[in-house]
């Protein structure tokens, strides 16, 4: 079989078949009557719930996405500045790394109520919480990318008379781009999850808030539909990111003459 056909089978057909099996098993479990329908709706009921409440789900999606993107932008900016400082100054490199690791050992669910307490119920605490969960992969990814730059490449740039800023711009930053995109994949999923969690502890809108409301109303079908929507949303964002990555990192895609 041709390599391309095999690629399609492994990348599309196999995952689709596994997902199909998952839904089939779920449907069979529900239809067997072993689990009460009120606790676990069937996939069919879940899809129906999604379409019947799609206007509500979309309204709350807008709020969650605003929080996620706002926080992600903050996380990227913070991660970028920290990585830059760690690359430029040895003192920052050794000083920041343990602090960065410590920030990641605090569970989001623990810190979220505190942030709400300090900043209130509007969008600001959500953005801060998302930024706190997303800056770490970016900072570490970029910092490693800068550090992995071939020292001979830096020597060559120095021999050309390039200063530190030019070495950073022409060599280190592009060299760190693959790491940046890998970090972005992690941060993007963290951003959505972070926004949803931040809404659980105090919000007036958003998908996290909507899930809690539906849970309290025992509308598990809508709750499940919203959860699947969140998964789909994360996957869509990852797809967009992968497309941007392919457009930006073009040099990896070229074939040898």
């Amino acid at each position: 079989m041709k390599k391309r056909s095999l690629n399609i089978i492994y990348k599309i057909v196999v995952p689709a078949a596994f997902i199909g099996c998952f839904f089939l098993i779920w449907e069979i479990v529900c239809l067997s009557g072993k689990v009460p329908a009120v606790i676990l709706p069937t996939p069919k009921q879940t899809f129906e719930a999604f379409f019947s409440r799609s206007d509500q789900i979309m309204k709350h999606t807008g709020i969650t996405l605003a929080e996620a993107f706002g926080g992600l932008a903050g996380g990227i900016a913070t991660g970028f500045v920290l990585a830059l400082l760690m690359d430029a100054f040895k003192l920052c490199r050794h000083g920041f790394k343990p602090l960065l690791v410590i920030t990641q050992t605090i569970p989001t669910i623990v810190i979220a109520p505190l942030i709400v307490l300090w900043l209130g119920y509007d969008i600001a605490p959500k953005i801060l919480l998302v930024a706190l969960t997303t800056f770490f992969p970016i900072a570490i990814g970029l910092s490693d990318g800068y550090a992995q730059t071939d020292p001979d490449m830096i020597d060559l740039m120095r021999s050309m008379g390039a200063n530190r800023l030019k070495i950073f711009w022409f060599v280190k930053l592009p060299n760190a781009l693959p790491n940046f995109f890998s970090a972005m994949k992690i941060s993007t999923t963290y951003a959505i999850v972070g926004a949803v969690i931040s809404e659980w502890v105090g919000a007036l809108g958003g998908l996290g808030y909507y899930i809690l409301r539906m849970q309290n109303m025992y509308a598990y079908d809508v709750m499940f539909a919203t959860i699947f929507w969140i998964i789909l949303l994360s996957l869509l964002l990852l797809l967009v990111l992968e497309t941007v990555k392919i457009c930006v990192i073009r040099w990896n895609k070229q074939e040898k003459l």
């Binding site: 001979d152 060559l156 050309m160």
Partner: peptide
């Protein structure tokens, strides 16, 4: 003083991303 001679290192050192 750097930037006074044209230096080609052992490897070609072409930037892969350019």
């Amino acid at each position: 003083a750097t930037g006074k001679v044209s230096y080609m290192l052992q490897k070609d050192m072409l930037l892969p991303f350019k």
